[in-house]
Amino acid sequence: MWRGLAHVFVKAQRTTGSRLILHEYLAARLANYLGIPVPFGEISSLPGNREAWVSGITSRDGKVLPPSTYDELMKSDRHILTGIFVFDQWIFNADRHEMNLVWSEDIGLWAIDHELAFCGDREGEERSEWFGECTLQPLGMTHLRRLGLTEEDLAPWISIIRTNGKSYAERALKSAHKRGLVSQRVSREYISFLTSRAKLIESFLKRGITGKPPRRAIPAPDDPQLF
């Protein structure tokens, strides 16, 4: 075994907002429990007493691997792409677009960039009030229908989230608490949020399949035409 240097992708904690690292950490754990490829990543210290989220999905020269289009991914990675969409619905990640997916023929499809999941990262708001706004709110996902995804495509992912969502949430938040990323009180709010959405995941996604507009849908900030 050798120790050396490697190129990694670094996201530093901002001075505004306080949940970037927590959200990346939770998303990576939850996704890997489900079998969805998300760079596992780790917390790292930076100069100036700052923390960052560090992951290693880059090419040899340090460049992030290029994205592919949804239509191309439907041909090469339909099952995983479907899982990513279902995962986004569960964790309320409205910031999914083609530029925060990475793909290569060697490793296939990976999802990145989850700091705005769990209803976003707002400064100075009580988490319970924040979750109260979106726990029962489906993300609008009419692109599921446009891409030709069916209930049969979604069913395996829905099943695992409905069956295991609560236990996965508990495991991920327990781990985050041990690392000092979240208090026990706030952990319980995340667990309640994820447990509630796991129970409703099928009804949320059927709205995207049928093309019916979801209640109080939130558009994706960077790619509104998909929603």
Results as ranks from 00 to 15, higher is better:
residue 173 L to G: 08
residue 83 G to Q: 02
residue 179 R to N: 13
residue 170 E to H: 00
residue 88 D to T: 06
residue 64 V to R: 11
residue 58 T to F: 12
residue 204 F to E: 04
residue 53 W to Q: 01
residue 138 P to D: 12
residue 190 Y to K: 05
residue 89 Q to L: 08
residue 54 V to F: 05
residue 37 P to S: 07
residue 141 M to P: 00
residue 66 P to A: 14
residue 61 D to Q: 08
residue 203 S to W: 05
residue 99 M to R: 13
residue 6 A to Y: 12
residue 227 F to H: 06
residue 5 L to D: 08
residue 219 P to M: 02
residue 1 M to D: 11
residue 212 K to Q: 15
residue 95 D to A: 12
residue 62 G to T: 07
residue 140 G to P: 01
residue 148 G to C: 04
residue 55 S to M: 11
residue 209 I to T: 06
residue 62 G to C: 03
residue 142 T to P: 04
residue 2 W to Q: 09
residue 64 V to W: 06
residue 160 I to T: 08
residue 156 P to E: 00
residue 181 L to T: 09
residue 150 T to S: 14
residue 61 D to I: 09
residue 64 V to D: 02
residue 48 G to H: 08
residue 46 L to Q: 07
residue 195 T to P: 01
residue 76 S to Y: 10
residue 131 F to T: 03
residue 216 R to C: 08
residue 12 A to T: 05
residue 47 P to I: 13
residue 41 G to N: 01
residue 89 Q to G: 03
residue 152 E to A: 07
residue 104 S to G: 11
residue 145 R to C: 11
residue 111 A to Y: 05
residue 220 A to Q: 03
residue 38 V to N: 00
residue 110 W to H: 08
residue 21 I to Q: 01
residue 41 G to E: 03
residue 202 E to F: 10
residue 126 E to P: 04
residue 160 I to C: 07
residue 163 T to K: 14
residue 74 M to P: 00
residue 127 R to P: 08
residue 180 G to L: 10
residue 103 W to P: 02
residue 44 S to A: 15
residue 93 N to R: 00
residue 28 A to Q: 06
residue 91 I to S: 04
residue 143 H to S: 12
